[in-house]
């Protein structure tokens, strides 16, 4: 059975068919190969590989594994989802791997809006047209924070200071990453400028801010909350205030048209059949509405919600247009 599955997989392209024929020839097992019937059967008939463009342990990885585990536990798909990591190259590695796989729904990607930033910066050789959106399973928004002993208690104080003394404060960002873009959008909206120091991970931002080598940095709400009273949050970039930190104002309510919601985005190759995507979307929607998953999201300051594939693609297209504008101003 396993072998037949393997063979049907090999025969999904001319080159692959050749390889399969060679393999079969060598093994002396050439028999009738039923290629077409494998597809008529209900999807999925083999494990679904979920590629994460990051190292294990981060948010995108964790959420994918939790959801995959839940789907397997409840049997919402006939086959397990298998999470693999392909970090590096601003996602190019993961996209290459997706292209290596099939477009029958057995190779999908779980990503977030770093994908759009890579597209806005024209980093890899991929764009939105390479993907078919399965949907968002929730997401989260970041905060801008300063050290607890900082002289600034509100975002307005910080803005006033920076307007009076341009570039007098250091912001920890990884150039070309989400903190850079979010900070840049906010700085553009409020009309100030900071100096930067390279910090390509949340750990680096924490290290630099807490050690006094940076004055302000962007954190996920859960990273911020885990630090207890060592930091003060000045502004939250969600659309509404977060229940876990009711006193932190959002940028929008302060009159700056800046918000950033980073979704957990499930993507398939562009030519994946719609009915396959529908099966996946149905399972994911059930998973994100499961009480265990919802509880994990709330505990980690993420919002659990479901946004369908086309809606998610529309949202992403809009965001990408915004990001391209920002990329032109901050680069």
């Amino acid at each position: 059975m396993l072998f037949i599955n393997g063979l049907t997989k090999y025969s999904r392209g001319a080159r692959k068919t050749l390889a399969a024929a060679v393999a079969v020839g060598i093994m002396g097992l050439a028999g009738p190969i039923t290629v077409e019937s494998a597809f008529a059967q209900s999807y999925p008939t083999e494990p679904i590989q979920v590629i994460i463009p990051f190292k294990p342990g981060g948010r995108t990885d964790t959420v994918a594994r939790l959801i995959a585990e839940k789907i397997k536990e409840k049997g919402w798909l006939d086959q397990p989802m298998v999470v693999t990591n392909a970090p590096g190259g601003a996602g190019a590695n993961a996209v290459n791997q997706m292209r290596r796989g099939d477009s029958e729904g057995y190779t999908i990607v779980h990503w977030h809006h770093q994908a759009l930033i890579a597209m806005a910066m024209e980093l890899g050789d991929f764009g939105l047209e390479d993907f078919k959106s399965i949907g968002y399973t929730g997401g989260g928004s970041p905060v801008w924070a300063v050290r607890a002993d900082s002289e600034f208690n509100t975002i307005q104080e910080l803005i006033d200071h920076l307007k009076a003394n341009p570039r007098s404060l250091v912001e920890a960002v990884g150039i070309g990453s989400i903190p850079h873009f979010v900070g840049g959008m906010f700085a553009n909206a409020a009309g100030f400028e900071t100096r930067y120091v390279t910090a390509n991970s949340g750990a680096d931002r924490l290290r630099l801010l807490l050690g006094g080598n940076a004055d302000v940095a962007l954190f996920s709400a859960s990273e911020f909350l885990a630090q207890g009273d060592t930091m003060k949050a000045l502004v939250y970039f969600g659309r509404e205030r977060l229940p876990n930190m009711p006193d932190v104002p959002t940028a929008t309510e302060l009159g700056f048209d800046v918000s950033w919601a980073n979704p957990n985005w499930w993507l398939a190759p562009a030519d994946t059949p719609d009915e396959v995507v529908a099966v996946l979307a149905a399972a994911l929607e059930k998973a994100i509405n499961d009480p265990d998953i919802t509880a994990h999201f709330v505990a980690n300051t993420l919002e659990p919600y479901w946004m369908s594939g086309p809606d998610a693609m529309e949202d992403a297209t809009k965001t990408l247009a915004e990001l391209k504008k920002v990329a032109a101003t901050i680069n």
Binding site: Y10, K16, A19, V22, A23
Partner: peptide
Amino acid sequence: FGRVPFVL
């Protein structure tokens, strides 16, 4: 390139 099965 050949995608020959791993065991073989």
